[in-house]
Amino acid sequence: MSKVDKYTERGIAFLEGDGVAKDYEQAFYWLSVAYELGSSKAETILCDMRAKSLGAPFDGDVPETASLDDGPDACGVTTGTQTVAVSNVRADESRPANPNRCIACGEEALVPSEAFAGAKHCSPSRGGCGTNVMIPIVEDGLARGVALQPYREPIPGRRENMYSSLGSLIHMVKYDTRVDDPLKAEMVREIVRRIGECGVIEQLVDKRVIRNLVVVPAPSSKRRKLQPVSLLAELVSEGRFGYEEALKKRSRTESKSRPKGTELAPNDVSCSESVRGKTVLLLDDTYGEGATLRACIRALKDKGAQEIYFLSLCKNIYGGVKGSSADDDDID
């Protein structure tokens, strides 16, 4: 079997879950490699995956059309990204919204990631911090999803891992009782400012629907005086989009307390009628196994939400949750 056929078949295996766990991001990666080597079969599959937002990246560095000679709508999707200044969180005029700016360090140093298909890497050779950002999240029912950074990152040359910059802020805001609520709120505001500077929402949400977007926070199981996800959603929406606290979680059982691999009970997440016919941007602080996200998608769809986009600050890739005794992480 030739290399191009091998990569094509590997991509199809991940796409269909044939002998391996279904993984759209891996499928897109291997099919992209096969496409670059000249596989027309991989090209056709990639076009279909992009049209369905299955594992597709956000930076346009892989094929977006049925043929390189065709126009931008050959796959039935709009290509390219739109960068718009954020009005509610003022960035310095010298630092306009820029999709190549790192959400972690703020440097304009992003290049395609070698670790995660569709993600970006903040290149130290360009003055960046070295972290991976804009990591795709794929779940049935999502138009598109992304996490801004891993929750933890490996320590080079060691088996341990450590909090990423955003992961550290999330852990502090949610669990560190030494930090008062006004300071925690300022941390959330700083994250929102970076989201604006990096043009994150403009990269994530199709420009056809961005004007009519409604921001919805993921529901929390734990009652806190300061609800960081709700504050995050309010600040992101302020002056730009609608805001609806439409989702409620009935159970107070936190995700870290559920057995690994289990789903939420039916109707554990409820949704109001306020999302009917609307395009939703669902926000959360962390994405782990995806149980809460899937329950939110079901609830939103049941109440008539149209397209659903998902933005998580972090994605759990390198561990540090489920059964950990080192910290009190609450990753859904």
Rank of each mutant, 00 (worst) to 15 (best):
50 R>M: 01
158 R>I: 03
2 S>G: 13
145 G>D: 01
98 N>S: 13
190 E>V: 09
34 A>L: 06
281 L>N: 04
27 A>S: 15
1 M>G: 13
20 V>L: 06
146 V>Y: 00
184 K>C: 01
330 D>P: 03
301 K>E: 11
315 K>A: 13
97 A>T: 06
305 A>I: 06
80 G>Q: 10
18 D>A: 15
155 I>L: 14
300 L>W: 05
328 D>Y: 11
220 S>C: 06
185 A>L: 00
251 S>R: 12
206 D>H: 07
304 G>F: 05
293 L>D: 00
225 K>F: 14
306 Q>S: 11
327 D>Y: 12
26 Q>F: 02
60 G>Q: 08
90 R>D: 08
107 E>D: 06
163 Y>N: 15
114 E>D: 03
159 R>V: 13
313 L>P: 07
33 V>Y: 06
287 Y>F: 15
167 G>M: 02
289 E>R: 14
105 C>M: 05
234 E>A: 13
270 S>A: 10
9 E>I: 06
30 W>R: 06
261 G>L: 03
201 I>Q: 02
157 G>R: 07
103 I>W: 00
149 Q>V: 00
168 S>Y: 15
285 D>P: 03
82 Q>Y: 07
189 R>Y: 03
259 P>L: 01
301 K>R: 13
140 D>R: 15
147 A>I: 05
6 K>G: 02
315 K>G: 11
307 E>S: 09
226 L>K: 00
45 I>D: 03
22 K>F: 04
126 R>P: 03
194 R>M: 08
16 E>A: 07
25 E>A: 09
210 I>H: 08
227 Q>C: 11
279 T>M: 01
169 L>Y: 04
329 D>W: 08
232 L>F: 10
140 D>I: 06
22 K>G: 06
167 G>N: 08
230 S>L: 11
27 A>Q: 00
81 T>W: 07
213 L>A: 10
166 L>I: 12
322 K>F: 06
141 G>L: 14
243 Y>S: 04
255 S>A: 14
167 G>Q: 03
272 S>A: 12
30 W>I: 08
156 P>E: 08
296 C>A: 13
307 E>H: 07
224 R>P: 02
220 S>W: 00
229 V>F: 01
326 A>M: 14
89 V>F: 14
276 R>S: 09
104 A>Q: 03
300 L>N: 08
48 D>V: 07
50 R>L: 15
80 G>P: 05
226 L>G: 11
142 L>H: 12
147 A>M: 05
248 K>F: 10
62 V>M: 15
319 G>W: 06
316 N>C: 12
69 D>E: 10
71 G>I: 12
307 E>P: 04
1 M>A: 09
104 A>P: 07
155 I>Q: 07
273 E>L: 11
224 R>S: 14
251 S>W: 10
131 T>D: 09
233 A>R: 00
123 S>C: 02
70 D>W: 10
115 A>H: 07
194 R>A: 01
199 G>S: 10
129 C>I: 11
92 D>N: 13
278 K>F: 04
284 D>V: 02
153 E>A: 13
2 S>P: 14
138 V>G: 08
64 E>D: 10
14 F>T: 04
320 G>A: 10
204 L>V: 14
12 I>N: 03
90 R>T: 14
248 K>W: 11
180 D>Y: 09
42 A>P: 09
